[in-house]
């Protein structure tokens, strides 16, 4: 009987080709959920979905769009916010 953690689906299954030439089943941790807009909840584009160990080794520019509120708000919500501010000036 396989170990209990291998029986559940909390870990994802990845087929890996090992150096011996065989394909083996490896168990890896699941990726985090997709980043969402802080105001409307839409899925953000241009954001990565990786585990922290990989994210820490990547440059900032690869992780979120390079505009104000990039990675927190979607482009539509950001524009609404900026226009609202500009009109209040």
């Amino acid at each position: 009987m396989p170990q209990p953690y291998k029986r559940s689906r909390s870990l994802r299954r990845v087929y890996v080709k090992v150096p011996g030439g065989k394909t083996k089943l490896h168990y890896r941790k699941r990726k985090p959920g997709k980043a969402k807009c802080g105001s409307c909840g839409a899925i953000l584009k241009g954001t990565l979905r990786e585990r922290p160990n990989k994210m820490s080794n990547l440059p900032k520019t690869k992780k979120r769009p390079e505009r104000p509120y990039g990675g927190n708000l979607c482009s539509k919500c950001m524009r609404i916010l900026i226009v609202k501010r500009a009109r209040s000036l």
């Binding site: 505009r67 104000p68 950001m78 900026i82």
Partner: peptide, 11 residues
């Protein structure tokens, strides 16, 4: 004007 899109947005 205020730019509302892209990297210079809000400027």
């Amino acid at each position: 004007c205020v730019k509302t899109a892209g990297r210079d947005a809000g400027l």
